[in-house]
Write a protein that binds this DNA or RNA. Sequence first.
DNA 1: AAGTTACACAACCGCGGACCT
DNA 2: CAGGTCCGCGGTTGTGTAACT
Length: 323
Amino acid sequence: MGRAPCCDKSSVKKGPWSPEEDSKLKEYIHKNGTGGNWIALPHKAGLKRCGKSCRLRWLNYLRPNIKHGDFSDDEDRIICNLFATIGSRWSIIAAQLPGRTDNDIKNYWNTKLKKKLMHGLQPYNHHSSKKKQQQQQLLFLTASSAAPPEAAGPSSLHHYSSLHDHYSHHYSRSGSYGSSNSSTSVLSAAAGSCDLLVNGDHHHIHSTTIPSCLDSGGGLGLYLDELCATTTSSVVHGQGLSPDPESFVFGGFQQLLEEDHHKALLLAAGAANQLDQQHSAAASSFYDEAKPLVSLTGGGNGAGGTSTGSSFFYDSSYSNNES
DNA sequence: AAGTTACACAACCGCGGACCT
DNA sequence: CAGGTCCGCGGTTGTGTAACT
């Protein structure tokens, strides 16, 4: 029954790979391929390594056409856009960046890009009172400005809080996500005017004054008054569609405590799924089960992705699920 | 110059789903 | 169908090195 154990953990070597090990692995795979069996590979290749370790070394370092070194602005943009849409699905993000590995992107995000984003989030709303500012927390929904207007998809209802689940569900069935040649547009969320559905109340927002969140990506945001309040009747104000876009996007951010910085960052990146996980307790205190916490409807200019990408978010089955 | 801290990156670990027997 | 392994993924840790005091 079953298969043999992957390896004897007590007898395998761990830690950094030596050049000799690298060349052994490279040579073996060039001659024989992986054979579809990483567990058996190290023994055949004469390596005292776990199959998992070999696989990781090959995929992340030895494989041909791997890019090392600085990420370009375009790559930054793509990573931010994708992270904003799907969260930390590094393998999917990596699939959109030829030559980059998920591990590489993950490290890059954790060490540089996240900080870059943090530093970008500093101007403050000069128009709000201090007390008001302290009460306000920022809910930030990112939307890609990279997608051209003509890429707009049909309208559908988006429940941001469940975007992650939808995404997993849909891509795993359609298998179309990797086929797009337009990585920035594949996962673009709506950037044009749209309706926000907050605890059942509709708010229509026009995009023309919506500024860019990152250097590149577009974004729209709104304040949630008393985000952590225990009441379920909190009102969401669609603030900031003002002549002072910067203050809208980043307003209130500086008042957040360390924990909230992380929360706001996740929000800023649109990683609603992570927010759900990490702050579900706080969120659940004011989340009305019967109504979506925050939803995005419509989608004018820039909504959705192109060609293959558009099927992603505007899949009919998804729309059906929402009704 | 030595010690400490911060940073970047490689590698490991554990989990969940797919697959095999 | 049940019980087991394999594979791939994401989170975390370890290690080398640069920057700072």
